[in-house]
């Protein structure tokens, strides 16, 4: 399969990439290319120009700033799961290890994945559960978008035209906090049929804070407030987790359906994987 004709250029800085984007309205940013190039091969996407940002040094780093771990947007999945700074952010490691395969993890990037916002991608759920802040830059300057406001719908984000994701800030977990990611994957593509990221804070055996986020279930990754609120103030036991997880993916919401999983099956899986992710985060 051959993509449509396309020009290619490599940006050497974020500033240059933003300028090139502004000058070429039919351009697309290319990082690892592991979502964009397959889409171009299927002719689902035919940009006039690709602006390669994968080798911009200021986009490929992982650092500990004291209260957060900051990941440059062009860091690959392999960069992330092998980086010692990520050790305390278990859900990031567990999700990253389940993305694609070795070869895909060596090319695909965190920034590329979240900007693409595939409704079955793993990172969006994890970023929601860990309350990530996403730094973006455009001609107007920089701004920070909380993960909870970033994923707005089916392949849609809060990025404005001409903006680039530059950094992902992950708050370091406080004492007593832990996270986990579990997924039921499509066996060929390894995308999530249902993926659940959970982050839980436990004080004196009682759950004081919780985030539960899903991918694969609806048209975008989302925080499930019903499950989280059912956990607050409860002892961190399997029984309480199971009871709270039974509220997963309920209420007035769109549930995905395809030839792998019906809506009813996805809803069932959401409850099962919420339980498993929460149990993982609580060390049960």
């Amino acid at each position: 399969m051959i993509p449509s004709s396309v020009d290619y250029t490599r940006a050497s800085s974020v500033g240059e990439a933003i300028r090139l984007l502004a000058e070429n309205p039919d351009a697309k940013l290319l990082a690892g290319g592991h979502s964009l190039i397959p889409a171009m091969k299927l002719r689902l996407n035919s940009p006039a120009l690709l602006i390669d940002i994968a080798r911009i040094a200021e986009l490929r780093f992982i650092e500990d700033t004291g209260n957060a771990i900051v990941i440059g947007a062009a860091s690959t999945h392999a960069d992330i799961i092998t980086n010692p700074h990520l050790k305390g952010l278990t859900a990031m490691i567990e999700a990253g290890e389940l993305i694609g395969d070795t070869q895909v993890r060596n090319m695909g990037t965190l920034g590329g994945s979240i900007a693409h916002a595939d409704p079955s991608a793993d990172w969006p759920a994890v970023l929601l559960a860990l309350e990530a802040q996403i730094k973006v830059q455009g001609a107007e300057g920089e701004r920070i978008i909380p993960a909870a406001e970033f994923f707005t719908g089916f392949f849609s984000t809060a990025l404005d035209t001409g903006e680039i994701v530059t950094e992902i800030h992950l708050p370091k977990p406080a004492a007593g906090s832990a996270s986990a990611y579990r997924k039921f994957m499509q066996p060929a593509s390894r995308f999530a049929i249902v993926g659940c990221a959970a982050s839980v804070s436990v004080e004196g055996g009682v759950i004081s804070a919780a985030n539960v986020a899903f991918t694969g279930v609806s048209d975008a990754a989302f925080l499930d407030e019903g499950v989280a609120s059912a956990l607050i103030g409860k002892p961190a036991t399997l029984e309480n987790i199971e009871a709270a997880a039974s509220a997963a993916a309920e209420g007035d919401m769109h549930i995905n359906e395809d030839h792998f999983a019906s809506q009813a099956y996805r809803k069932h899986l959401a409850k099962v994987y919420a339980k498993r992710a929460l149990a993982g985060a609580c060390g049960l």
Partner: peptide
């Protein structure tokens, strides 16, 4: 590619410059 296994059907030649 630079010592790491990758799938060359999902990469442009230009990316490997």
């Amino acid at each position: 590619l630079d010592g790491k296994a990758i799938k060359s059907c999902s990469l442009l030649a230009a990316q490997a410059d």
